[in-house]
């Protein structure tokens, strides 16, 4: 069986996908009898399209060395955006364009178009899900296609599939966790070094851990999108981004961290999801507790009716790490098709 893939978005995660496909395609072929082929890959303004399949390493090299995928030898194209979906035959859309929590685009339109064409979709994009979760899920159901979005929450940390599949006998009562790696990194360093928020933020930006515009991370918006996705997907709450009470970490002072530390606590940006509460805010967590994870790690404690509490920890971001969650989603779809 051939699995023809269109990959939309060729930043860090998109390139991670190309890398992981190159690394794992032989094993996937052996284990699942599926031959993965990237038939089209698009960056923000161009693409490379070839029905016979593109070379993963050449895609990465072209992007790195020549800036745009239109420079891909022979198959580079100026077709971009949603038109790419009309340019080639495909089975699955892997969508990792940047999150836009104001409009949910281009993820929403790309996903809807793929669904209407009866194609399966794997995404890492939070924007459309934080704004219109129910619309997207309903459309997938209506068109009888698979839609997977594990990578939207916690990167490589398994949470959505873990709760849905591995804990399928349980009702999920609440989820509480550290859902943003950048803020965890900043707060961890402030705790370890006693430095100010501004100094650590600046260093994090230099290290590429925080973005040039860090607002989405430090003001809790990214974590808030994730709480919405968890609420909808695991608790069955019909919530959207505006339902989340959000407080970020930009007002946390080194004095506050010191006081917390002296009393046996750490300050973490915590996302809370219950049937009645959606909240992201800085909270006190006990040193040595399950919430005591540092650096860019994410964690979440899932409270269930039968299994009590299950805690997962993992890398919340990173090119290969996030791609791992997406390829796992793709394999889940392949298993269903087998």
């Amino acid at each position: 069986m051939e699995c023809k893939i269109i990959l939309m978005g060729f930043g860090s995660v998109g390139q991670g996908i190309a890398n992981v496909i190159a690394m794992k395609k032989d094993i996937i072929k052996d284990n699942y009898d599926a031959e993965l082929k990237l038939v089209a890959v698009a960056d923000s303004s161009s693409s490379a399209i070839c029905q016979e399949g593109l070379d993963e390493q050449l895609l990465i090299d072209t992007k790195k060395n020549k800036g745009k995928l239109s420079n891909y030898p022979e198959y580079g194209s100026d077709i971009s955006g949603i038109d790419v979906l009309d340019a080639v035959e495909y089975d699955c859309l892997i969508e990792c364009t940047p999150t836009n929590k104001e409009t949910g685009e281009p993820a929403y339109s790309l996903t809807m178009k793929a669904f209407e064409a009866r194609k399966d979709v794997v995404t890492s994009n939070k924007g459309h899900l934080a704004l219109r979760f129910k619309d997207v899920i309903d459309a997938a159901e209506k068109n009888n296609v698979q839609f997977r979005y594990e990578a939207t929450v916690g990167g490589a940390m398994p949470i959505i599939n873990c709760a849905k599949d591995t804990l399928s006998s349980c009702k999920i009562e609440s989820i509480t966790g550290i859902l943003n790696g950048t803020t965890n990194y900043i707060l961890s360093r402030m705790t370890a070094e006693g430095s100010s928020y501004e100094d650590i933020l600046k260093e994090s930006q230099e290290l590429g851990i925080a973005e040039t515009d860090p607002t989405a991370d430090v003001e809790g918006e990214d974590a808030a999108c994730k709480t919405v996705i968890l609420a909808n997907s695991l608790l069955g709450v019909d919530a959207t981004y505006t339902d989340v009470e959000v407080i970020g970490i930009s007002n946390i002072t080194s004095e506050a961290i010191e006081l917390a530390k002296d009393a046996g606590y750490l300050i973490k940006l915590i996302g809370e999801v219950t049937p009645t509460t959606l909240k992201v805010s800085p909270r006190l967590v006990k040193k040595g507790s399950a919430y005591d994870v540092s650096g860019t790690l994410n964690m979440a404690t899932i409270k269930t009716d039968l299994a009590d509490e299950i805690t997962v920890v993992g890398k919340g971001a990173g090119s290969i790490e996030t791609a791992s969650a997406m390829i796992t989603d793709l394999i889940s779809i392949l298993k269903l098709k087998k």
């Binding site: 004095e255 006081l259 917390a260």
Partner: peptide, 16 residues
Amino acid sequence: FNIQLSEDNKSAALIN
């Protein structure tokens, strides 16, 4: 009520 004053005038306190 353990208060720590800060240079920028925003103080922090631990309240039990």
